[in-house]
Amino acid sequence: MPVPPALKAFALTPSTALRKRIPSARRWAVGLLFGLVLSACAQHPGTVRLDPSAQPMPGAKVLIMQPDVEVSELTVGGLLEPNAAWTAAAESNIDQALERVLAAQGARWVHLNPRGKLIRTPAVSQLVKLHGVVGASILIHDYGVGAPLLNKDGRFDWTLGKDAAILGKAYKADYALFVYFRDSFSSDARVALNVLTALVGAGVRGGQQVGFASLVDLRSGKIVWFNVMARGTGDLREAEAAVDASQVLLAELPF
């Protein structure tokens, strides 16, 4: 899935999320910043988009697509440095967190086999890519980043097309769940810079946790549910925190 540049626009926090382990000497400044983050990072209400024509399916079986997760370190110069070890930890945490969240909402689940033959067939690999493009379009047009599409007439109306049924048949699943997470943590030097700039009243962005997810009806290919999140806290590298992030993102699933 391509990284949608639009996602940045959902950053609801104005400035910083600080790394968890902060040297004690700077604690007072951190406390101040933490207050700012907490007041600003509350999940924006009404981020869920629902296809009004979708019918709830109690006890539905959800195919969990391979989550697109990347965890980076925010360098002092503002570069995001992808971290393979953190990402591997986050991936396995997210996998388990999704199971828990789905089970809690009364859904059954099955994982897509990322090394299986099916994912390598052109139809399915293109379906995953298509979802990346459609997802980016939803982010742009349904969340006020770009202009809304006039021919949608205010409806939430997106589809991956009939080929989605291939996945439904292969896994005997009713829905496919696509999840995208990006998490970043400030390097020690970035934290220091944040503190310094806060002292003189300027703002430097800290680490961010952003994500979006969509639920695809595998009979019709329609995206029936979509949600985004962006906040300055959380840590996908920790199992419990990954559950928390998944709960926030997967709130109000339409089962």
């Binding site: 360098t75 110069g77 570069l79 440095e81 310094l196 003189v200 430097v204």
Partner: peptide, 21 residues
């Protein structure tokens, strides 16, 4: 190149901060 970019941008971030104040 990545490491060099990281080091250069780090230097820049602090330098801009220093000159701003």
């Amino acid at each position: 190149r990545w490491r060099d970019l990281r080091a250069t941008t780090s230097g820049m971030a602090f330098f801009q901060f220093a000159t701003a104040i």
